[in-house]
Design a protein around this nucleic acid. Structure first.
Lengths: 218, 218
DNA sequence: CGGCAATTTGAACATTTTCAATACGGGTGG
DNA sequence: CCACCCGTATTGAAAATGTTCAAATTGCCG
């Protein structure tokens, strides 16, 4: 936890440069982390934003299936980590260093202030992008459970937000990383279980209990 | 291509609000698009940024495998589309409306000006996030080709950027959506083909030609 | 009402996961 | 410096899952 002075070291960092250009000082304090250290955990109250000064950080997320956490992204030198703190209450991922890494951290409040007026176009755009990212599930593929489960999860998720609108099935299948045939079969299976009703063009949740059961591995 | 006046309609839009708050006017002009219309195509010169005012836009990307384009994300009301224009020369995806959609567009130059000073912290953060997003490959799963191919692509990609550093294999496997066993077998197969050399802890490209061949479906 | 394209279904085939057992490799303590 | 240990990576064989290809069905739209 070594707080480093914001000197010339920051002149190679976009944050430091921005701070310089805007006349403010960089709000981030540098900290050295060992391999395997955890910056924050998925679900924790998002209170701090990090910037990878030099090194590598892995982003892990629990998948309802297969119990364990899966790393779904890595962030290298020059990336922010935990920016979701700006738009969410909790962290989306667990961040763990993959090697000895120098990270700069700052509290949410400080970063908030550093970013300036909340209605600035740049800031609006930033938060918009972060929100979009937050909604996206991490890429889910094979090991995230069999097709019917992924489909069940997708229906659940859709019914919450956007709802109503249904893309052509072919595209939905694509989103879920499967061929249309597999998607079709998965739907058929969910219908069989009584979880949903499905015509060729419409989709309706019949028994949300059953649907949840199909979505969760338990 | 109906240019709508920036009146009360924009009062529900974060862009409009930002413009209002910052005393500027919103640089975006509203356009109605029919279902299936294409906003821009993957690889096209990224000259325009869009905002989804109301509706749905699908983002498709070609996968070297399986020939066709796969939709890998959808953007709904209130999302930017094509923001990569700010940090790249070409579009990353093809954007196609999934229903009749009202989008607001503006040229890169205009947006650039709208976002203000390029060294503003908020803007630095924004571009940083966009860059990170640009590097990430869309989620790749089953239909993107067999495991050895995905592994070959990953090695190719890694050798370009970060290089050197190798996460524990278990994590790499996770990134590629496969169990460690499959990853291991895929590596073994690439070794067999003479594309790479691999000890349990190191990895070395032996024949980049062969590796490329393994990565591409051709 | 007819034609077209998307979806569904079926059966064979390919790939991946699983589970279990083995082989490494690095780190530790002598 | 070497032997021992432990966790990670590899390998094998069987089972589950997904893909492919082809054909039949359905719904939409003109």
């Amino acid at each position: 936890m070594t707080q480093s002075p914001r000197g010339p070291e920051c002149s190679g960092c976009p944050c430091g440069l921005a701070a310089l250009a805007s006349g403010s000082s960089c709000p981030f304090g540098a900290v050295a982390r060992d391999k395997g250290d955890v910056l924050f955990r998925e679900g924790d109250l998002a209170e701090r934003v990090w910037f990878v000064r030099r090194g590598t950080v892995m982003l892990e997320r629990f998948t309802s299936a297969s119990g364990g956490a899966r790393v779904h992204a890595v962030r290298r030198t020059g990336s922010f980590v935990g920016l979701e703190a700006l738009v969410r209450r909790g962290y989306l991922d667990t961040a763990r260093t993959a090697e000895p890494t120098l990270v700069c951290g700052a509290s949410k409040a400080v970063v908030d202030h550093w970013l300036g007026d909340r209605h600035t176009p740049a800031r609006v755009a930033l938060e918009q992008v972060l929100l979009t990212e937050a909604v996206e599930q991490p890429r889910s593929g094979g090991p995230d459970g069999p097709a019917p489960r992924r489909v069940a999860r997708w229906i659940l998720k859709e019914s919450l937000e956007g709802e109503g609108l249904l893309l052509p099935r072919r595209h939905v299948a694509s989103l879920l990383n499967m061929v249309p045939e597999t998607f079709s079969r998965a739907l058929a299976q969910l219908v069989e279980r009584g979880a949903i009703e499905a015509s060729r063009t419409r989709l309706h949740i019949k028994d949300i209990q059953a649907l949840r059961a199909a979505a969760d591995p338990l």
